[in-house]
C-alpha cells in the first residue's frame, strides 16, 4: 500500500527532516510510526498525502509513484486517503453532519447517498445522536471521533493519523485506537504516528521507529494481510 525508497526531505532552510527512509506497509496492514518529537513522523505522513514533496527518493502509494503525480491530480489522490489530525481540523461553523458530509460533497455524491454514508460513519464512531450539534459543543474525544468519521466516510483504502490521541486521557485513547482496529479488520490499511509507547506496546502492531529522520528499527508485531 505504501512503499518508501530512499526518501529524504529537506525543508527550505536546509534542515533535513527525513534521511534515506525505506519501508513497506502492506495492503491491509496496521502499523505505528513512533519517535521523539521532531523525529520526522508528521513529515513522513505529509509526504504520503502530498502535503509535502520529497527532496530525494520515491514514494509509492497503491502502486502510484507520487513523484509522477501532477498538481491537478493531488485532490483525487487525497480522496483515497483518510487523514486524521491531532488538532481535528473541523469546520466550526458547520454541524457534525455537515463536517462528515464534506468529503462526499466534494466527490459529488447525491443527497441520499451522502445521508446514508454519513449516518453509517457516525454510527461507527458512536456519534449518531450528535449529528445536528456543532463541534464546539463536543468534548475533545468526540471531536476526534468526528474527524475519524470524516476520514472514513469516503471508504478510503488507507488511513493516516497524526498523533490522534495526543490530547486524550488513556481510556479515551484506547477507545480511539479500537476504532482504528475495527477499520483495519475490514481491510483498511492504517498508519498511526504516535509517541504514546505504553499504548503502542499494549496494542501489539508493527512499529516503524524514526530517530532524527532516520529509520531506527522495525519491530515485528501482529500484521494483517
Amino acid at each position: 500500500m505504501i512503499r518508501f525508497s530512499h526518501v529524504s526531505k529537506r525543508y527550505p532552510g536546509g534542515f533535513e527532516a527525513l534521511s534515506d527512509v525505506s519501508f513497506h506497509l502492506a495492503a491491509g496492514e496496521m502499523a505505528f510510526l513512533t519517535g521523539h518529537s521532531g523525529a520526522g513522523k508528521s513529515t513522513l505522513l505529509k509526504l504520503i498525502a502530498l502535503i509535502e514533496r520529497p527532496s530525494g527518493g520515491q514514494v509509492l502509494v497503491n502502486g502510484q509513484n507520487l513523484n509522477k503525480l501532477g498538481r491537478w491530480r493531488i485532490p483525487y489522490h487525497r480522496r483515497n486517503i483518510g487523514v486524521i489530525f491531532q488538532d481535528h481540523r473541523l469546520l466550526f461553523d458547520r454541524t457534525v453532519y455537515d463536517n462528515v458530509a464534506l468529503p462526499l460533497i466534494i466527490a459529488g455524491h447525491g443527497a441520499q447517498e451522502v445521508g446514508r454514508r454519513v449516518r453509517a460513519a457516525l454510527d461507527k464512531v458512536g456519534l449518531l445522536g450528535k449529528e445536528k450539534q456543532y463541534p464546539i459543543t463536543l468534548s475533545g474525544g468526540e471531536q476526534q471521533r468526528v474527524g475519524i468519521a470524516r476520514a472514513v466516510v469516503n471508504k478510503p483504502p488507507l488511513l493516516l493519523a497524526d498523533e490522534p490521541t495526543g490530547n486524550l486521557d488513556p481510556e479515551l485513547s484506547r477507545e480511539i485506537m479500537r476504532i482504528f482496529e475495527d477499520f483495519n479488520r475490514v481491510g483498511v490499511s492504517v498508519l498511526i504516528a504516535s509517541h504514546d509507547h505504553n499504548l503502542i506496546r499494549s496494542m501489539g502492531h508493527r512499529v516503524i521507529a524514526l530517530e532524527h529522520g532516520r529509520l531506527a528499527e522495525t519491530a515485528g508485531g501482529l500484521t494483517h494481510g
Partner: peptide, 16 residues
C-alpha cells in the same frame, strides 16, 4: 483560509 485548507486536505479540487 482555514476552511480552504481543510477542503484541500480532504480532496477538494480548485474548481470546487
Amino acid at each position: 483560509r482555514d476552511e480552504i485548507v481543510i477542503i484541500k486536505l480532504i480532496g477538494g479540487t480548485d474548481a470546487f
